[in-house]
């Protein structure tokens, strides 16, 4: 639960250092992700939250060496898994990594499933890729896995084709495939965005249970602060390709430091109390290639000052395990250093 407490002592499972991702178009390069650094420990539940185009999905894909190259590529930094840099890995070690150590599930399970194969067969294929066991044993394992992700009557459902299942069931199948080879890190990119709330709650509970039972680390990428609040241990808030705030979940919601995080929280109407008007953030997130200089949130920021446009953006730790990339906290940094 509180893996973050041991942050300093145990080597992290995955550490991302100064990651930079660019999209190359003819004669120009657009930054998609810049100077992103964070670490994930075994058994930890890390949330990455941000709006579309903030670079959260690209960051996730880079952790599997899955950037949609050759136009999009990591042009700097390192992504270390167990001390090995994923960004420089070749084909065979990447395949080994994806099969055995890191797994990923996506928002739309239908496009990840083969429509003409039963789900049981597809899980069997995944198992056989990484384990030398007989087909029958693999089938039994597949059924066990389906049961483990709470699919009722697993032995029968294993013979179903993807189109015979509901969206929630398909996402469970994807999770079963992802955990088939006992990964140590599971990356979930908006896994519940397409699902109804009652099903979303089931899927998130399932992910959290698997994390606890298997000691697996989970990185959950979402736009939903509520999901983060309920499940994550630590959270990264991303905006326009950068991490703008990094915190333990409790302190993020108790005291958000970055004006963007403030704005995000104000944009969601509360379920328990009445507010007249939402504190919306004006304007919209700039698209990559149109990012302003200095702090990228500054044109939309209610607290912006002239210096923001020239500020050299960096995360400033104003209290332990809580950092924000905002000029307002620069003072705290200097006093901290003193």
């Amino acid at each position: 639960m509180s893996a973050a407490a041991s942050t300093e002592t145990v080597a992290p499972l995955l550490s991302v250092e100064h990651l930079r991702i660019v999209a190359a178009a003819r004669r120009r390069e657009d930054l998609l992700v810049e100077d992103v650094s964070f670490a994930v420990h075994a058994g930890e539940f890390l949330g990455i939250v941000g709006e579309s185009g903030c670079g959260k999905s690209m960051t996730a894909l880079s952790m599997l060496g899955l950037l949609p190259g050759p136009n999009v590529r990591a042009s700097g930094g390192r992504v270390l898994f167990d001390g090995q840099d994923i960004l420089t890995m070749g084909g065979s070690s990447l395949r080994h990594l994806r099969g055995n150590d890191v797994a990923m599930i996506f928002q739309d399970p239908m496009s990840s499933l083969n429509p003409v194969q039963t789900i049981g067969e597809q899980i069997v294929e995944t198992i056989l890729l990484h384990e030398k066991i007989g087909r029958e044993r693999a089938w039994a394992r597949a059924v066990e896995l389906l049961a483990e992700v709470n699919i009722p009557a697993a032995a029968q459902r294993a013979r179903d084709y993807p189109h015979q299942l509901s969206g929630g069931m398909r996402q469970r199948v994807m999770i079963a495939m992802a955990i088939a080879c006992k990964p140590r890190l599971l990356i979930a990119d908006e896994p519940t965005t397409a699902l109804d709330v009652t099903i979303q709650a089931q899927i998130l509970e399932l992910l959290d249970r698997l994390r606890r039972e298997r000691g697996m680390a989970v990185i959950l990428i979402t736009h939903d602060l509520g999901v983060i609040a309920e499940y994550a241990d630590r959270v990264l808030v991303m905006y326009s390709g950068r991490i703008v705030e990094r915190a333990e979940v409790a302190s993020l919601f108790a005291q958000p430091l970055h004006p963007y995080t403030h704005g995000l929280l104000g944009s969601v109407p509360p379920l328990e109390e009445e507010v007249d008007e939402l504190v919306a953030i004006e304007g919209q997130p700039p698209s990559p290639g149109a990012w302003p200089s200095g702090c990228r949130f500054q044109p939309r920021c209610p607290q912006s000052r002239p210096e923001c446009a020239s500020w050299s953006v960096r995360l400033i730790e104003s209290e332990p395990d809580h950092a924000a990339a905002c000029i307002l906290h620069e003072h705290g940094e200097t006093s901290h250093a003193d």
């Binding site: 004006e282 304007g283 919209q284 700039p286 698209s287 149109a290 302003p292 044109p299 939309r300």
Partner: peptide
């Protein structure tokens, strides 16, 4: 008034 921050 919502003028886009991106230049179109």
């Amino acid at each position: 008034t919502n003028i886009s921050t991106t230049d179109h």
